[in-house]
Design a protein around this nucleic acid. Structure first.
Length: 350
DNA sequence: GGACATCGCGAACGATGTGG
DNA sequence: CCACATCGTTCGCGATGTCC
């Protein structure tokens, strides 16, 4: 690696940056025991929802105070605080490592990017005198002034208000960038955890490989696009495991599970079954049950459905006894909805 | 009618390919 | 080498459907 490549990459949430950050995070851990894996996953990826102040386990609009998922979020937050041995008010300090560190990098690149763009923007605006200044939001300014009127003696100059507006916007839009990190970030975290399992030497782990580069799968027909798999595990022995890794699940993506599997099966030429595993952190009981029960012809679609820690959703729902929530304990008890810990053990035992 | 469950699109971004 | 379009992923979000 050259000197240049060793410096912080341009894309703070890109593949290279994530690899550097995860390498740093796992430096103190030569190995990771299966029972600790879920804690690492949450420390790295789980975050506090700013609108509720609680650990995020469901869509934020449905988790607002007074709505059903607020109670469940409280219960989850409570459970997790105890598990991670944190004060409920200080759980944030134990979470969100990857995003916080990534955002520090992003902030640095934003500064230089903004400076560069400001110069260009001046040229772009040159012949439009009197036009609104970018980032200006009169309504927001009035709202702030109204709220603070008892506390400030005079109206700050326009430049100051503009700066405030821009900073406020940047602060609140910061959260949007998290989605970017989560998708491939979850895949990378799993790959790092798998590689550090005691006994992982027998496994070959590939994040986002091309399907046809895995043993026993052929290239797609010319006109068809090559397929990537979220995560693949080769071994133990001749076992091939294809994973679909989704932090959460939406109905429109659920359809994709079957489509993907059909493509994988069509391009399989080994004639030996491959495993198809879903790893998720979804909390909705109905969505989890659907994944557990989803079928292809007369078999279950997924070899295993793995949750970061099923005790989380169980804690969230508590003793609530209605709807799909009733199926959740059943699937956990039967092992159909597996914990990350239990699933990791199946990979390294024997 | 209220409490969910389901649905489907939108914003925001990284990765990749294309074309100049 | 850069600008641009396109694709794929996430959660947010509001509308619609369903059940008691």
């Amino acid at each position: 690696m050259t000197e240049d490549e060793a410096t912080t990459p341009e894309r703070a949430f890109g593949e290279e940056s994530r690899r550097q950050l995860l390498t740093e995070y796992f430096l103190p851990f030569e190995t990771v025991a299966p029972e600790d894996a879920w804690k690492h996953a949450y420390r790295l990826l789980l975050w506090i929802d700013r609108t509720t102040g609680l650990a995020h386990c469901y869509e934020s609009d449905k988790s607002q105070p007074g709505r059903p998922w607020y109670a469940r979020s409280l219960a989850f937050h409570d459970w997790l605080s105890k598990e991670l041995e944190a004060d409920a008010g200080k759980l944030n300090e134990k979470l969100d490592w990857l995003f916080i560190r990534g955002f520090e990098r992003l902030a640095r690149t934003l500064v230089s990017q903004n400076a560069r763009r400001a110069v260009i923007a001046e040229q772009q605006r040159a012949k439009y005198a009197g036009f609104p200044r970018p980032g200006q939001d009169r309504e927001f300014e009035l709202l702030i002034l109204e709220e603070l009127k008892a506390w400030i003696s005079k109206v700050p100059p326009p430049d100051v208000m503009l700066q405030l507006t821009q900073r406020a916007r940047a602060y609140f839009s910061q959260e949007n960038k998290r989605k970017n990190l989560l998708g491939e970030g979850f895949e990378d975290v799993l790959a790092f955890l798998l590689e550090r399992l005691p006994g992982a030497a027998k496994l070959k782990i590939k994040a986002r490989p091309l399907l046809h580069e895995l043993p026993g799968f052929r290239s797609p027909p010319k006109r068809e696009k090559p397929r990537t798999v979220d995560l693949a595990i080769l071994g133990p022995g001749k076992r091939r495991t294809l994973l679909t890794v989704k932090w959460s699940i939406r109905a429109d993506r659920e359809e994709q599970f079957g489509v993907d599997f059909d493509a994988y099966a069509r391009l399989d030429e080994a004639g030996e079954d491959f495993h198809y595993v879903l790893v998720t952190n979804e909390f909705d009981a109905a969505r989890l049950a659907a994944a557990c029960e989803r079928r292809r012809q007369n078999a279950k679609l997924f070899t295993a459905v793995v949750h970061v820690n099923p005790q989380g959703p169980l804690a969230a729902y508590g003793t609530e006894g209605r709807g799909s929530a009733l199926n959740l304990p059943k699937h956990v008890k039967s092992g159909r909805l597996m914990s990350l810990e239990a699933w990791l053990r199946t990979l390294v035992k024997a």
